[in-house]
Nucleic acid binder design. Structure first.
Length: 486
RNA sequence: GGCCCCGUCGUCUAGCGGCCUAGGACUCUGCCUUCUCAAGGCAGCUACGAGGGUUCGAAUCCCUUCGGGGCUACCA
């Protein structure tokens, strides 16, 4: 290895929202750059103008920011190798295409899509490797004139020489492709726009990328990319190093989709997964720090991440494990952090409007629920009882407190609670235990369930006495009275 | 079909020839704790795809086979 600094790029083609697989790739790219003290470059591959939209590009930028995967070169931050949107680099690609044409490394191909399809069809039937048959490789000027006279348009095709391409993949070792199975490929469309194969290769070289860590679906396109480097006149020692990451698959079998584990990262954000939890979980898909370590911070990830420890086999996405990690991360939050994350969910659910008194109360209540939730979207549901002005008992719980036994418990509670002067959860609990458990001889479970329903409206709530304390004496007594009237 | 990649519990993984009667985590089951729900603790279930080699010894090396996936576009 030489001493040049590592530069890793994440170069998505935003034809949709970034999904879990993309993010995992971005995470590894970022972690590797940070681990080596190198540069993390973010580039948008928007050469497929039919499918890429501005909204998706913007969403990709936002997603990376939200996850905390900061980049050193790319959209918004700029850099000396920009622009970083391929759609703004069209003249560069055109220049190289012309150079390849001049060097006879590339040639114009006048075959129509229908003709190409017919060739492929024939190849399939004949059971030979499908691919371009080299029809226009060595056209005479007369043939070219004839095609032009027919009004045919042409694409630019790269000439693939005989032989083979072998490269060393950091994850898979030496990989070799015989050129018999790598047909001449298109660099420029008939409309003059560049294709991925041209643009990536040119940009990786021009932007001085040293390491290409990307999905394994691109593994078989690597020989084509290397062919472009050659045509560019780049010395082999200056080629980027490749590492093809294994897939992240859905729960069932194949590709990740809406059906098996939500694919879009926006969904996780809405559900209340923490960026750090997502990154931690994703880091464990196809990589492991070893030593039975699993729960790590972003910082630890950058310290421990190496490509050598990345797997070559694909991993299945498991929502349950993500949830478990998210729960751990939530529990590890300080109350102020937890508050910061929770507030948007509470206001969005209209549980609070955002006044300082409300926030004060939320802050006191948060410790009660911190170990009871796995995603932030549960926060409103769990704290709602503290803020409702029109108190109501859950429909399915009403029948549990209308029997005479429950009425008895509630009546006695009212009497005892009225006598509690210092409204603290310790005093509330002491008063209630003495009267209901010791004197009436009730089982705690029975007695407190009735009270829980009467004060919080549900059979499930944060710890009872703490909840009552936060609710306040007046509200508690009022609610119990309401419940008694049911 | 062809080319390429991949194969340890249900899932993510540890393992790089002896420490493996295969370890951890998630899930699941049971128990403990307990004012509900959680959290926590303890215990249990379950894996080296198969077949051949190499070796004193293989999850680890080699071969074959089976299985999964990717590519085979004027997508990326």
């Amino acid at each position: 290895m030489n001493a040049k600094t590592v530069k890793v790029r994440f170069a998505p083609s935003p034809t949709g929202e970034l999904h879990v697989g993309n993010i995992r790739t971005a995470l590894f790219d970022w972690a590797y750059a940070r681990h080596t003290g190198g540069v993390f470059l973010f580039r948008i591959e928007d050469t497929d103008t039919d499918r890429v939209t501005d909204e998706y590009i913007q969403a990709a930028i936002e997603t990376l920011k939200w996850l905390g995967l900061d980049w050193d070169e790319g959209p918004e931050v700029g850099g000396e190798n920009g622009p970083y949107l391929q759609s703004q680099r069209l003249d560069i690609y055109a220049e190289y295409a012309q150079k390849f044409l001049d060097q006879k490394d590339a040639y114009y191909c006048y075959c129509s899509p229908d003709e190409l399809e017919a060739v492929r069809e024939a190849q399939r039937k004949a059971n030979v490797a499908p691919g371009y048959n080299g029809h226009c490789r060595d056209l005479t000027q007369a043939q070219i004139d004839a095609y032009k006279a027919q009004g045919r348009s042409a694409v630019v095709r790269m000439r693939m020489p005989d032989g083979s391409t072998t490269f060393t993949d950091l994850i898979r070792g030496d990989v070799s492709f015989d050129h018999n199975f790598v047909p001449d490929f298109v660099l420029v469309r008939a409309d003059g726009s560049p294709l991925y194969t041209l643009a990536v290769a040119v940009d990786d070289i021009l932007m001085k990328v040293t390491h290409v860590l990307r999905g394994e679906d691109l593994l078989s396109s690597t020989p084509r990319q290397i062919r472009v480097y050659q045509a560019m006149g780049v010395a082999p020692k200056d080629y980027p190093v490749f590492a093809h990451l294994p897939f992240v698959m859905g729960t069932d079998n194949a590709k990740l989709s809406k059906r098996n584990g939500e694919a879009s990262i926006a969904w996780y954000r809405e559900m209340g997964f923490l960026p750090e939890a997502i990154c931690n979980y994703l880091a464990l898909l196809g990589w492991s720090p070893g030593d039975d370590v699993e729960n790590i911070t972003m910082k630890e990830l950058t310290q421990m991440f190496t490509v050598e420890k990345v797997h070559s086999s694909p991993a299945r996405f498991d929502m349950k494990k993500l949830e478990a990690i998210n729960g751990d991360k939530i529990r590890a939050l300080t109350i102020d952090e937890f508050l910061k994350w929770s507030l948007p969910f509470l206001t969005k659910a209209n549980v609070i409007q955002g006044s300082s008194q409300e926030i004060e109360l939320v802050k006191k209540a948060l410790p009660l629920i911190q170990e009871r939730i796995i995603v932030l979207s549960e926060v409103p549901k769990m704290l709602k009882f503290l803020f409702v002005t029109e108190f109501e008992v859950d429909a399915e719980s009403v029948s549990k407190i209308t029997d005479s036994g429950s009425k008895e418990i509630l009546k006695r509670s009212v009497k005892e609670l009225e006598g509690v002067s210092q409204w603290s959860h310790e005093n509330i609990e002491a008063a209630l235990r003495t009267s209901l458990i010791e004197e009436l001889g009730l089982k705690p479970r029975i007695a407190f369930t009735a009270l829980r329903i009467a004060t919080t409206g549900s059979t499930i709530s944060p710890p009872l006495f703490e909840s009552m304390e936060l609710l306040g004496k007046e509200a508690c007594l009022a609610r119990i009275s309401t419940a008694l009237a049911l």
